[in-house]
Write a protein that binds this DNA or RNA. Structure first.
Length: 815
RNA sequence: GCGAGAGUGGCGGAACUGGCAGACGCGCUGGACUUAGAAUCCAGUGGGUGAUGAAUCCGUGUGGGUUCAAGUCCCACCUCUCGCACCA
C-alpha cells in the first residue's frame, strides 16, 4: 500500500491540469455563468498563509460551482502599482518595476503550488502598459464627463511617503500605509467628483443584499448623510449674508451666536478693522493646531469675536459672530448657527465666552444640568410655534423658511471628493498636458498610453519624480502642436484597482478596455472575497467607477459586486503576521511539510472563515492526520475486488445513511454560504464512521459496493478542498476523467429512511431517558414505550397533566 | 459618546424554524505496538457529590422574565472586538 505522499502527487496533478487547460474559462457557454473573484494582492513581498486564506476560500467556491454545472470565471492578478511596492523597492535599492515583477513571479509560483484553479490566461497586472493604458482611459472618461477636475486645496500630506493622500487613506490622522502623522499642504491636485454620486452610493446599499451588514454600515457612515436646511442670516449693517447648514432648524429660536471656520473667506471681510491685528494672532494660533487634533472632541474650544452681528430671521434678534476652531470649512458652509442649549459643542463654546444659553426645546423629563439637551420635546420660547412637538415643528419651520425665501431643505454629506494625484513615481501617469496657449488639454485616446519611463530618479522628494524627466515632461500640445508639459503626478493605486474586475473579461484586448457584450455577460461579480480593510476604500471607489461607466453607457449594470464575503485574518502568537515580528507562517514551508491539500483543509477548518483565527501548529497536524487516515482507508477500499452482496444488513444501511446524510449536510453547508469548517468536520465524522465499520466487521463480510460508493462520493465531496488528493485517488479507482469535470453528487433520500429512531424522554422538562421508537410513531405509542422505562417511571408519579411530543425527537411528560 | 458584532469545556469551535449543549479538531490522561523514539491504533476527557459503579445535581458573561422546554425569544446590566467620532 503506497503511503500518502503529497510531494509526489501534487506537482503531478498541477501539471496535468495545466497541460489539459482545465482551468481555462470559455468566454461563453450554454451553462449559467458564475464570476468568482478574489481581491488581488499588492505584490510588495511574498505571501504568508493569511493571504492564502482568501484564495483557498475562493478556490473552494469556484471548484464547487463548477461541479454544480456553472461556467466559472476565476481569475487572478496583481495590484502592482503604488506606494506599498514602491516603498519596499526603495528600501531594498531596487527599481520598483524589477522588484514588483520579481514578486509577481514568486507569488504566482506560490499559488500554483497550492493548486488554485485560476485561469492564468486572464492574469492582469496593473503596472504594465496594456493595462494602465486603460486606467488612463478611465481618467479621460471621467474628465470628459466633468467628473475629474483640478483644484488647489488643503490636502492630506504624508511626510514620509512624500505624497498627498485621499481622505479615505488617512486613519486617525495617520497615513494608512506607513502610520506617519499626516500634515496639510496646499497643492493643486486632481480630484474625482465622487460627491456627485454620494446619494446613489448610499441608496444603492439597500439593494446590496448579498453584502455583510457591517461593510454597508461602514460605507453609510463614511458617506455620512445628514438631512436639514440651509438658512441665510443677514449681517447687521451690511448687505452680506451668511449661510449655515443645520439639522435642527427647529432650534432657530435658541440661536445666540454665529460661528465661522477660521479658514472661511468671510472672516477677513467681516472683522472690524480695529480687531484685525488680534484676529491675525488668533488665526495663527489656531492654524498651528493640527487639523486632526482639532477634529477631536477633547480639544479646547477657542473663539474670537469679530465685532459684527447677524440678524436671526425668525425673531429679528442680533447675535454676535465669532470665529471658532471647532467649525470645519470642509463641511456644510463653513459657518454654524450656535444653539448652546441643544448642542454640546455650542454649549461648551458659549459657556467659555459667556454667551447666553436659551432653552427652546422642553424635554419630557428633567435632564442633567451642565449639558446640552438634544433629544425630543416641545418647542418653547419659539414665538408662534411654542408648544409644538419637535418633528412637527421642524416641518413648520422648514416650510416657513422656504416660503419666505430665507432657506431651504438640504442634504449634506461627509464624503469629500477623491484626491487622486500622487507625487510619486510608481503609478499610472495622468494623461493631461499643460499648454501655455490651450491650458489644460487631455491626451487624445489614440495617443494612449502616456508611458511611465523606466530610467528616472524615482526617490521621493516631495516633488513628482517625473518632474525631473525632460524626456517625459516635454511634449507638444495635442491641440495646437506647440511645446507643452505633461502632468508629472501619477494616479492613486486605487484608481487602478477600481476597474480591474472588468479587465479580466477581456484581458488581452488592445483597442478597448473591455467588450461591452462580454462584460455584460460576466458581470456583476457573483461572489467577491476579500479582507474588510477595503470596506470603504476599494469597495467604495469600485462602486463609484462602475456607476460612472454605467452612466456613460459602457456598462449595463451599476453595481459591480453582487455578493461580498469578508474573510477574517490569520493571527500568530496573538498578532498579525509580519516579518518584523517574526511570526510569519509561509505557505511554502507548509506545502513542503504537509502538502497543499493539508494546508488548504486546515485553513478552511480553523473556524468560520469570516472570523479571525489563530494559527496553531498542532491544528494543522490534526488535519494532516485526517487526510492520511482517509487516504489509507480509501486506498484499501479501492484495492478490494468487487463482489456480490445480498440485502443490506443493518450496519450497512447505517453506513449508507451516514454517507448520504453527510452529503446532504455538506451540500447545505456549501449552499448556505461558506460553512467550510462544519463541512470538513462532517467529512471527518464520515471517515470515522467508515473506519469503525471496517474495524468492527471482519474483512470477509465487508460490503464492498457500499464502501466503494463511500469512496467515490467522499472524493467528490472533498475535491473542492483537497483537489490533488481527490484527483489522485479518483484515478486510482480506475476513473479516467478528471474529478474536476464530475458533477457534485446528489444524496439519495431513500438512504436516509430509518425504521427506528432514538428520542429523548423528559419528565417536567428534564431528560430522564433515551428510548428507541419506530420512526413516525404516534404519541400514544411513544408514551407507552416511555412509561415502560424504569428510569422514566421512577419520576412519573400519578397521571401526567400534559404530554408534549415532537415526532422523532422528544417526548415531554408534564406532571 | 454613536453604530455594528460577539461572549459556550484547558483551547479552536458545533448545535435546523426554541426541542438530547459541547459535534469535529487540538490538548491532556491511560493503554497497545516498539530496545527506544517517531508514526499508528484503542479507551477516556464540562464540573460537582458518589467509590472506579448505579445514581444524582449544577452548567452556554450576569440578573430577571416568557415557555412543558431557552445557548437560542423578551427586559436590564457587564465585558470584549471592530468601525465612526467637534460633520453643526
Amino acid at each position: 500500500m503506497p503511503k500518502y505522499d503529497p510531494a509526489e502527487i501534487e506537482p503531478k496533478w498541477q501539471s496535468f491540469w495545466e497541460e489539459k487547460g482545465m482551468f481555462k474559462t470559455p468566454q461563453y457557454s450554454e451553462l449559467p455563468k458564475y464570476y468568482m473573484l478574489v481581491m488581488f494582492p499588492y505584490p510588495s513581498g511574498t505571501m504568508h498563509v493569511g493571504h492564502v486564506k482568501n484564495y483557498v476560500i475562493g478556490d473552494a467556491v469556484a471548484r464547487y460551482k463548477r461541479m454544480c454545472g456553472y461556467n466559472v470565471l476565476h481569475p487572478f492578478g496583481y495590484d502592482a502599482f503604488g506606494l506599498p511596492a514602491e516603498n519596499a523597492a526603495i528600501e531594498r535599492k531596487i527599481h520598483p518595476h524589477d522588484w514588483t515583477m520579481k514578486n509577481i513571479n514568486t507569488i504566482r509560483g506560490q499559488i500554483k503550488k497550492l493548486g488554485i484553479s485560476y485561469d492564468w490566461d486572464r492574469e492582469v497586472i496593473t503596472c504594465v502598459e496594456p493595462y494602465y493604458k486603460w486606467t488612463e482611459w478611465v481618467f479621460l472618461k471621467l474628465y470628459e464627463a466633468g467628473l475629474a477636475y483640478k483644484k488647489k486645496a488643503a490636502v492630506n500630506w504624508c511626510p514620509k511617503c512624500m505624497t498627498s493622500l485621499a481622505n479615505e487613506q488617512v486613519k486617525d490622522g495617520k497615513c494608512e500605509r506607513c502610520d506617519t502623522p499626516v500634515t496639510i499642504k496646499h497643492l493643486e491636485q486632481w480630484f474625482f467628483k465622487i460627491t456627485d454620486y454620494a446619494e446613489r452610493l448610499l441608496k444603492n446599499l439597500d439593494k446590496l443584499t448579498g453584502w455583510p451588514e457591517h461593510v454597508k454600515t461602514m460605507q453609510r457612515n463614511w458617506i455620512g448623510e445628514s438631512k436639514g436646511a440651509r438658512i441665510r442670516f443677514k449681517v447687521d449693517g451690511s448687505e452680506m449674508q451668511i449661510e449655515v447648514f443645520t439639522t435642527r432648524p427647529d432650534t432657530l429660536w435658541g440661536v445666540t451666536f454665529m460661528a465661522l471656520a477660521p479658514e472661511s473667506p468671510l472672516v477677513e471681510q467681516l472683522v472690524l478693522p480695529e480687531l484685525h491685528r488680534e484676529l491675525e494672532k488668533f488665526l495663527e494660533k489656531v492654524g498651528q493646531q493640527d487639523r486632526f487634533r482639532r477634529g477631536a472632541a477633547d480639544v479646547e474650544k477657542e473663539g474670537f469675536f469679530t465685532g459684527r452681528y447677524v440678524i436671526n430671521p425668525v425673531n429679528g434678534e442680533r447675535v454676535p459672530i465669532y470665529v471658532a476652531n471647532y467649525v470645519l470649512m470642509e463641511y456644510g458652509t463653513g459657518a454654524v448657527m450656535g444653539v448652546p442649549a441643544h448642542d454640546q459643542r455650542d454649549y461648551e463654546f458659549a459657556s467659555k465666552y459667556s454667551i447666553p444659553i436659551r432653552q427652546v426645546i422642553k424635554p419630557a423629563q428633567d435632564v442633567v444640568a451642565g449639558k446640552a439637551y438634544d433629544g425630543p420635546g416641545l418647542m418653547i420660547n419659539s414665538g408662534e410655534l411654542t408648544g409644538t412637538p419637535v418633528p412637527e415643528g421642524m416641518e413648520k419651520v422648514l416650510s416657513w423658511l422656504e416660503e419666505k425665501g430665507l432657506g431651504k431643505r438640504a442634504v449634506q454629506y461627509k464624503l469629500r471628493d477623491w484626491l487622486i494625484s500622487r507625487q510619486r513615481y510608481w503609478g499610472a501617469p495622468i494623461p493631461i498636458v499643460y499648454c501655455d496657449h490651450c491650458g489644460i488639454v487631455p491626451v487624445p485616446e489614440k495617443d494612449l498610453p502616456v508611458k511611465l519611463p523606466y530610467n528616472v530618479e524615482f526617490l521621493p522628494t516631495g516633488q513628482s519624480p517625473l518632474m525631473l524627466s525632460d524626456e517625459f515632461r516635454k511634449t507638444t500640445c495635442p491641440k495646437c502642436g506647440r511645446p507643452a508639459l505633461r502632468d508629472a503626478d501619477t494616479m492613486d493605486t486605487f484608481v487602478d484597482s477600481s476597474w480591474y474586475f472588468l479587465r479580466y473579461v477581456n484581458p488581452l484586448l488592445n483597442d478597448a478596455p473591455f467588450i461591452k457584450k462580454d462584460v455584460d455577460y460576466w458581470l456583476p461579480v457573483d461572489q467577491y472575497v476579500g479582507g474588510v480593510e477595503h470596506a470603504i476604500l476599494h469597495l467604495l471607489y469600485s462602486r463609484f467607477i462602475t456607476m460612472v461607466l454605467h452612466d456613460l453607457g459602457y456598462l449595463s449594470f451599476d453595481e459591480p459586486f453582487e455578493n461580498l464575503f469578508t474573510q477574517g485574518m490569520i493571527y500568530k502568537d496573538g498578532a498579525k503576521m509580519s516579518k518584523s515580528k517574526g511570526n510569519v507562517v509561509s505557505p511554502d514551508d507548509m506545502v513542503e511539510k504537509y502538502g497543499a491539500d493539508t494546508l488548504r483543509l486546515y485553513i478552511l477548518f480553523m473556524g468560520p472563515p469570516e472570523k479571525d483565527a489563530e494559527w496553531n501548529d498542532s491544528g494543522i497536524e490534526g488535519v494532516h492526520r485526517f487526510i492520511k487516515k482517509a487516504w489509507t482507508l480509501i486506498d484499501q477500499i479501492i484495492s478490494m475486488p468487487d463482489r456480490e452482496n445480498g440485502q443490506l444488513t443493518q450496519q450497512e444501511k447505517e453506513l449508507r445513511r451516514k454517507l448520504h446524510s453527510s452529503l446532504k449536510k455538506i451540500t447545505q453547508d456549501m449552499e448556505g454560504g461558506f460553512k467550510f469548517n462544519t463541512a470538513i468536520s462532517s467529512l471527518m465524522e464520515l471517515t470515522n464512521t467508515v473506519s469503525d465499520y471496517m474495524e468492527k466487521i471482519p474483512q470477509e463480510n465487508w460490503n464492498i459496493s457500499v464502501l466503494k460508493e463511500f469512496a467515490e462520493k467522499f472524493l467528490l465531496m472533498i475535491s473542492p478542498f483537497a483537489p490533488h488528493f481527490a484527483e489522485e485517488l479518483w484515478h486510482r479507482m480506475g476513473k479516467n476523467t478528471s474529478i474536476m469535470k464530475e458533477k457534485w453528487p446528489v444524496y439519495d433520500p431513500d438512504a436516509l429512511i430509518v425504521e427506528e429512531t432514538e428520542i429523548a424522554v423528559q419528565v417536567n422538562g428534564k431528560i430522564r431517558d433515551r428510548i428507541k421508537v419506530p420512526v413516525d410513531a404516534g404519541q400514544d405509542e411513544v408514551l407507552k414505550l416511555a412509561l415502560s422505562s424504569e428510569r422514566v417511571r421512577k419520576f412519573v408519579d400519578g397521571e401526567p397533566k400534559k404530554v408534549l411530543y415532537v415526532p422523532n425527537r422528544l417526548l415531554n411528560i408534564v406532571l
